[in-house]
């Protein structure tokens, strides 16, 4: 009997088991990250560089893996491997937040800011592609571009990272304006909540910003071994990156969408609501409360 042709990608689904989870209610902080410290997870920090010698980082940065990208006057993107400093302090700040939450994770600096103002988006895109190609478990992007002509290229790069298994955590713009790649579904987009608890984050039912974490008046490591206080979604994103590193440390086989699901289930507003109601009922209730049309980026 002739074999019946099947549509492309058709296959039998393999039975998969997520250990210890048969229902969403089984997802608890203890299951998600209990006992984990980020060990085994590599986090790429795409930013202004990292001051790897800052005392707050306690040697968590792999200088040998560091890489920087800049664009020449001819528009050529140049990759330079090896250690570098931080031009502004911003990358060190993000690294410090991630390290404070996931001290066992190893951090890599992917420097794309601070080496001239020419072709910034091109350097940024090259850094993102590099991190995806090197299959970093978590990629922190407290950056974005407003250039529409780069939107498609960033969309492709984020999909590439997603299918390579990398969680791309991005900061939403600090004001209500479009910013790429924070608007894409393949990334985990983060804005500030008002909490001063670094582990307390919220799910935002009004995308494209999906999660809210600490980002207001945050004490962060800065240049020259100093510490400053600063505010912005830039500092909310690394809080989620840190939590994602903990989850991936404990559950290395989870795919990006599964990690996002765990983050959703562990969000303070979801967890506190599910204390009295099942997650399924909560989802239906939130769906009913959702506005009829989606607008621009959420605050």
């Amino acid at each position: 009997m002739a074999e019946v042709p099947l549509p492309a990608w058709t296959k039998e689904g393999d039975a998969l088991d997520v250990a210890g989870v048969s229902r969403l209610e089984d997802l608890t902080p203890e299951w998600a990250w209990g006992g984990a410290d980020g060990t085994g997870v590599r986090v790429a920090v795409i930013d202004s560089g990292i001051d790897s010698g800052h005392p707050a980082l306690e040697g968590c940065v792999d200088d040998a893996d560091a890489v920087s990208f800049h664009v020449t006057g001819d528009g050529e993107v140049v990759e330079v491997a090896g250690p570098h400093g931080d031009s502004f302090g911003h990358g060190t700040a993000c690294a410090g937040i991630i390290h404070s939450l996931a001290p066992g994770a190893r951090l890599t600096s992917v420097k794309v800011l601070g080496q001239g103002l020419q072709g910034k988006a091109g350097a940024f895109l090259a850094g993102l592609r590099w991190a995806a190609d090197n299959r970093y478990e978590v990629i922190n992007l407290s950056l974005g571009t407003r250039r529409r002509d780069w939107a498609l290229a960033f969309h492709d790069a984020c999909d590439r990272a997603y299918f390579a298994g990398s969680i791309v955590v991005t900061a939403a713009n600090n004001v209500q304006r479009r910013s790429y790649p924070s608007l894409y579904a393949s990334v985990t987009s983060v804005a500030c909540n008002t909490s001063d608890d670094p582990q307390r984050f919220h799910w935002n039912p009004h995308p494209p910003t999906e999660f809210l974490a600490r980002g207001i008046d945050v004490e962060v490591p800065w240049l020259d071994g100093q510490t400053i206080r600063s505010t912005g979604n830039s500092y909310a994103a690394p809080h989620i990156s840190g939590m994602a590193a903990l989850i991936r440390s404990k559950h290395p086989d989870l795919q990006p969408f599964q990690v996002k699901t765990v983050l959703w289930a562990m969000s303070a507003n979801v967890r506190e609501a599910t204390a009295v109601e099942t997650a399924g009922k909560l989802s239906r209730r939130m769906e009913a409360a959702r506005p009829p049309a989606l607008g621009g980026p959420a605050a």
């Binding site: 202004s48 031009s87 502004f88 302090g89 911003h90 800011l113 601070g114 001239g116 103002l117 910034k120 950056l143 974005g144 571009t145 407003r146 900061a171 713009n173 600090n174 004001v175 910013s179 008046d217 800065w222 240049l223 020259d224 100093q226 510490t227 400053i228 206080r229 600063s230 505010t231 912005g232 979604n233 830039s234």
Partner: peptide, 26 residues
């Protein structure tokens, strides 16, 4: 030069607010 808070903002394209401790020279 493109440095400090102004340098960060012109490079990253995002507003920023920094509270410097005494001794911060950035």
């Amino acid at each position: 030069p493109v440095a400090g808070a102004a340098g960060l903002v012109v490079s990253a394209g995002e507003p920023t607010s920094i509270e410097s401790p005494p001794g911060d020279t950035s």
